[in-house]
Amino acid sequence: MFRDFLLPKVGMAAITIFATSAVVFGALYLAPGDPVTFLTKGRPADPATIAAITQQYHLNDPLITRYQLWVSGVLHGDLGQSIMFRQDVTTLVGSRMPTTLWLVAMASVLIVTVGIGVGLFSALRPGKLDDSLMLGATLAAAVPIFVIAIALVSFFSIRLGWFPTFGSGESGGFLDRLKHLTLPAVALAFAAVAFVARITRASLREEMDKEHVRAARSRGLASSDVVRRHVVRNGFAPIVTVTGLTIAGLFVGTAIIEKAFALNGIGGLLIDAVSAGDFPVVQAIALLMVIVFILTNLGTDLLQHYLDPRQRRAVKE
């Protein structure tokens, strides 16, 4: 299993990460915006100042030299210096990472439990409730994320006073964090829950119509056994893939949520860094997001491999 399956997968992931690192670096080089303008706040600066800044950040070196410098830095755990904060990017991103990870983890739990749960329920219990759940899911998937954020805050924070309006609860304990991140996680997961519920329902319904399931039923096997052994097991492949991809994509959605709830995670930092032309920070976060995406994908593949015997066989053959 290791040589046939894991090794090529991990190898591919490493190659993808390396290739995207070049794209991430190159794209920013081409993007408009000039760090010198940010550092001098657009005011007249004497040539000596501009020269000092240019040299400090290697702004005049050719692209390839800067890329080499950057890659060798990254491999040594040094992501460079933030132009905006004059701090190590590693510390800057590191201190904001826990909030984003917590947020994504909580949203993922919601997506997996509620999304798959609702889909499962709808698939197995066709009827009015199923119809209205799916209509609700369609609507939910269409509402912009910031609208949900505003609605949740005005109802649960201002009207009912159950949750705080902002902040990550970083300085408090576990429960404080949970309390602070509940609304942001719900807002972040909202559309994804609806999406995953629809996919789950569709996938399971398809399995239920298959011949072997009908045959099993007609032979009088217990309904719960049929569902567990034939429907769910076979129908889960696409659900796992879609859920995995959705969760991997959550990292991008955090930017909006972090701004709306003043969470100051890496999504919010990315927005600030982009508008300030803080290249080292943008590069680091973009690379980080790519890595997380690829790793989540890899995890999904592995899970798929474990769940679906046909895939294992395919590898062996």
């Binding site: 910031f146 309006t165 709830f261 003043a262 100051n264």
Partner: peptide, 15 residues
Amino acid sequence: VFITDEAAITAASVA
């Protein structure tokens, strides 16, 4: 604390 979003600072003030 750092709150830049208009809706967020409005909500935090009202609450």
